[in-house]
Design a protein around this nucleic acid. Structure first.
Lengths: 237, 237
DNA sequence: GCTTGTCTGTGCGTTGACGCACATACGGGA
DNA sequence: TCCCGTATGTGCGTCAACGCACAGACAAGC
């Protein structure tokens, strides 16, 4: 099931595409292509991370799980980034869970190899740090958005964040799961999604959602979305 | 007004205290001791950062300011850390404002020197990264707390975070300012603070608050506080 | 076909926080 | 001393989100 990754596959991940031919050629033998099913947990909170993941078509959600079982998303990673920054930041773990939000493929690399490559310095090192800063912005904006904005706005933001990281306009996810990610009630998502359907921005049938009018969503979202988008573009151009 | 920092002053900042004698001796000539008044803005959102700050007695709050003027805190930095991580992360700026929450002293270093020292690698490099990871945990937990917990709990968390970074039990800050930090109404802070007063945990008179019973506060706070505390201890021991 | 489990819609009452409007209280300066 | 600006307390009505309960609606399997 595990196969060495090809150059073409690696280039689907924006970070790997940006590090340059020479470094990519060195990394390639250590990159393994795997398929991730919906719901798979890549890391559990506090668990030692064995691999770093560079998604291509998969989307990974970073969640914090409360003691009472409720949860909230702090960030989302797709083909624009990587999962497992704690490996090179030096902490080895984080108090979060990383779970597959959209089934798809990812490249993975052994943690030790990742550390070696990182400590070489150079473009890869810098790119990892710039990506980390972009992720910090995303997490920060999640904090702000959680504090100041409505469920409607946050659903828009979540949909756009997902859409940015997907090859198609379809999102396969039940309202219950979205509610868990956003840390709100399932009924709250039902209401917000209905409003978006009435506006003609999305269609939604039993866990199968389609983005119909992206511009419409962008007109309803709070400024948080654009702030993060702009920072990603600036830092990872 | 600006004076070279002494070794003793530098050791009041936990990061500088942890990097070891040799590296500290090299940094010391580049560290300048300055006093920061309450409310001073160290960086404006998107502004190029000229200095990195290592607080000793000052506390700095990292805020995001919405277009409509409302604001929310995403993190807080005291003598446990540093302000200006974007300088070595490679982004040079962040979309946040850094403002003095508690008047006091800080050491500051020129951004170019900071970059040089960081790229040397070694213990300082690693410590900066580990601190960054700790800060990420703090921001993440702010996001979670904003989503799932009451104003009462968040005020407790905020008080404990401040208390951890202060040499005394006094916090000089009006309810209005605290409300701006937490992104809630001033009246909400009034109510929450009154409850804490009635419980005997704090006293509060016109911008002059005293922590009377820290254990009481800890018994009222949500788990978010301890998660962050534990991560700081683990990463920066 | 029928059953069963899952997903979505809807209708309550409740609650926490909001926005607004004042009343009160303190403290420094004229 | 008085005044005035600032800080805090309080009382509304409003609203968004919550918790709970249950009713359809669809899909898969027997």
């Amino acid at each position: 099931m595990a196969a060495n990754a090809t150059r073409k596959e690696a280039l689907q991940n924006h970070l790997l595409a940006a590090i340059g031919d020479e470094e990519l050629a060195r990394l390639l033998p250590n990159l393994e292509l795997v398929s991730l099913p919906l719901g798979q947990v890549l890391y559990e909170s506090g668990e030692k991370m064995d691999y770093v993941y560079f998604p291509t078509t998969a989307i990974i959600s970073l969640l914090y799980i409360m003691e009472n079982g409720s949860s909230a998303e702090i960030g989302v990673v797709g083909n624009d980034g990587m999962v497992g920054i704690a490996i090179f930041m030096g902490g080895d773990t984080t108090p979060n869970r990383a779970v597959v939000q959209n089934a798809g493929k990812t490249l993975k690399m052994n943690a030790a190899m990742m550390k070696d490559e990182f400590t070489r310095g150079g473009r890869f090192h810098n790119l990892c740090l710039r990506y980390t800063q972009a992720l910090i912005t995303q997490i920060s904006q999640t904090a702000v958005c959680n504090r100041l904005h409505s469920v409607d706005q946050q659903l828009c933001r979540w949909l756009l964040l997902s859409h940015d990281r997907l090859p198609s306009d379809r999102i396969l996810m039940t309202q219950d799961l979205i509610a868990n990610m956003l840390g709100v009630r399932r009924e709250g998502i039902t209401h917000a999604a209905k409003r978006l359907q009435k506006a003609g921005y999305i269609s939604y049938v039993r866990g199968d959602m389609t983005i119909l009018d992206r511009l419409g969503l962008e007109s309803s979202v709070c400024e948080c979305y654009q702030v993060v988008r702009t920072e990603y573009d600036r830092l990872l151009a």
